[in-house]
Amino acid sequence: MTDGNQYCTFTVGSLFLGIDVRKVQEVIRYQEMTRVPLAAKVVTGLINLRGQIVPAIDLRPRLGLPPRAAGALPINVVVRNSEGAVSLLVDEIGDVVSVEADSFEPRPETLRGPSRELIEGVFKLKKRLLLILDVDRSVDVTQLAA
């Protein structure tokens, strides 16, 4: 489940999350977005990334968290999956951390709501837990209501 052992980290609300660095294309500051009519509410819009049109998914509602404070701008973590590039909107970017693959544990039973299906598992770090985000499930919004 966790082939690599380096993760790009970021926060969304109080959650400290990570994505395998091999899935991250780039991290960029907030970009103006074009709204998509009738899209699921987690799809904030489309961004133009050097001529490539990329959908932007806000991880706050995707994880069942309250909206960002007024005026707080998200950061784009552009990831690649089989469908192409997708931007995940996060609150704050962290560092790339290295972890031992054998310290991976299944997702905690205490996770509830939408986040339960989007978290693959955890790594115990010195001061907190690193929740590993399932990128493919996070960007799959086909089952969500608009």
Results as ranks from 00 to 15, higher is better:
78 V>Q: 06
110 T>L: 10
144 L>S: 10
82 S>R: 14
91 D>P: 04
120 E>F: 05
76 N>G: 04
92 E>M: 08
72 A>H: 11
143 Q>M: 13
26 E>Y: 08
16 F>C: 05
103 S>Y: 01
72 A>E: 15
66 P>C: 07
128 R>Y: 00
75 I>K: 09
5 N>D: 15
141 V>L: 07
119 I>N: 11
30 Y>H: 14
108 P>C: 01
142 T>F: 07
35 R>V: 12
76 N>S: 12
36 V>E: 06
5 N>L: 09
142 T>G: 15
16 F>W: 07
35 R>W: 09
48 N>D: 04
51 G>W: 05
41 K>A: 14
90 V>Q: 05
63 L>W: 11
39 A>E: 12
94 G>A: 11
141 V>H: 07
91 D>A: 06
98 S>G: 10
97 V>Y: 01
37 P>D: 12
99 V>Q: 00
137 R>Q: 15
79 V>R: 03
63 L>P: 09
2 T>G: 07
22 R>D: 15
134 D>L: 02
50 R>Q: 10
146 A>L: 06
91 D>L: 04
14 S>Y: 05
92 E>D: 11
20 D>A: 11
144 L>H: 13
5 N>P: 00
70 A>N: 10
115 S>C: 13
112 R>F: 09
62 R>W: 12
126 K>I: 05
134 D>S: 11
47 I>A: 06
19 I>K: 06
59 L>Y: 08
34 T>L: 11
18 G>R: 12
9 T>S: 07
116 R>C: 06
135 V>A: 07
146 A>Y: 02
3 D>R: 13
133 L>T: 07
67 P>Y: 13
140 D>I: 02
56 A>T: 09
67 P>T: 13
115 S>P: 00
96 V>M: 05
106 P>D: 04
122 V>A: 00
133 L>D: 08
80 R>S: 06
45 G>T: 01
118 L>T: 05
63 L>C: 10
89 L>R: 13
142 T>Y: 11
22 R>K: 13
72 A>K: 11
47 I>S: 01
78 V>N: 02
129 L>F: 07
14 S>P: 04
70 A>H: 13
130 L>W: 01
27 V>G: 03
41 K>W: 07
138 S>D: 14
75 I>L: 11
24 V>E: 02
109 E>L: 14
19 I>N: 04
139 V>F: 05
126 K>T: 12
61 P>M: 15
108 P>Q: 09
132 I>A: 01
137 R>T: 08
136 D>F: 04
131 L>C: 03
110 T>C: 03
16 F>G: 03
139 V>E: 08
64 G>A: 12
26 E>W: 09
135 V>S: 09
137 R>Y: 06
103 S>L: 00
23 K>H: 15
1 M>Q: 01
112 R>Q: 15
89 L>V: 13
49 L>W: 02
80 R>N: 08
111 L>T: 02
108 P>Y: 01
51 G>K: 08
20 D>W: 03
71 G>L: 02
2 T>W: 00
